[in-house]
Design a protein around this nucleic acid. Sequence first.
DNA 1: GGTCAAATGTGACCACAGTCATAAATATAA
DNA 2: TTATATTTATGACTGTGGTCACATTTGACC
Lengths: 200, 200
Amino acid sequence: MSLREKKKTETKNKIFEVSGRLFKEKGFEKTTVDEITKEAGIAKGTFFNYFSTKEALLLYFGEQKEELIYGLIENETMKGIPTKEKITNFLVFLAESVEKDKELTKLMVFEYTRYMVHSYLGPCEDKCRLHRLTETLFGLLDEGVKVGDVKTSLDVYKASEIITGVYLHSLIMWLNSEDKISFSNEISGKIDMLFEGIGV
Amino acid sequence: MSLREKKKTETKNKIFEVSGRLFKEKGFEKTTVDEITKEAGIAKGTFFNYFSTKEALLLYFGEQKEELIYGLIENETMKGIPTKEKITNFLVFLAESVEKDKELTKLMVFEYTRYMVHSYLGPCEDKCRLHRLTETLFGLLDEGVKVGDVKTSLDVYKASEIITGVYLHSLIMWLNSEDKISFSNEISGKIDMLFEGIGV
DNA sequence: GGTCAAATGTGACCACAGTCATAAATATAA
DNA sequence: TTATATTTATGACTGTGGTCACATTTGACC
């Protein structure tokens, strides 16, 4: 690693570290880029060499966290249990990890939306968090069809989209709630209903 | 109506009208408050007497549209058809009305999220668009239980939340898509699946 | 270690949302 | 009509995110 690269990652890490501390202390909105750069010992312009906007920094936080989560999931003991339980465990795990920092999650959902709206950032690639979730669910359901846990006639992709939607909505409701409800409980209840169906 | 009130609504309408035109011409982001006020023939400060932020104006657009939609729905010919069809018709109608102006919808979804995040605006009252949708669905499903279209054992509220989630997710996917998919088609397909269930 | 090109750093500067003390317009009371 | 209170309008001003022309540092090649 060249000196340049070393300094680069050093600076990026410094920004990450300082802003993380400041966000926890005073929140995202009330932390200014000026503060971050001052504390990090760099010029304001430098900040924007690393993150195109203040919000991009937030997305970076999200990415870091996401990598951790999906990494953990693949190492989970998810063998030999029914598909419904696999999916429930997976989503509950996601929910629990999100429940740990409600404020950060709020901000990230918000930024994700902004990202979506301002599509000059290019169409959905890995930026689309929801796609990743849908793909993972697709994998689980597809296996379920083979095993016989799930209707063979099922449009598996549509089903994974539905589950993603239910997850997203529960997340949003939880973010809006005054904390009386448990996100992870909500989720598992709804998965049950999805598997049974609504009609008679 | 006093002179004051008359002038007030006049000014508000002027802002509404001018900004509507400008948003269509140049988009929301590129339209500045200065422009709006200049064209409306008022001072900048006056704008903020009517809308606390530039974004509040966007929400106002949304509210206006929503009133129209829900108004129409109650007058619809929705008598005597099965619950599943009622729900499908309702959501397809919503979807179609949203499909008419994708950009505005994007912005509104975005602002709705912002509204949610910055909860110093007070907790969810009528601001919660999703709640209204869930309540409407609840009404339809509840009737369905009585009529026998829907499982009697069903947790009706949970089911309406699920449907809301599916609607929301389809909306978001459609907003992100490059226009090849039809939002309203997506929705009706997914309602079918919800009624049948995923499990064997 | 001298020279050039490319990458990175810098901070004065700008655009724009939002504020606030003050002025103008309107209502109320006499 | 005059005097006073209340509501609404005004625009200079401020704070902050983001830009850009220029300075500095680094790496490659001789």
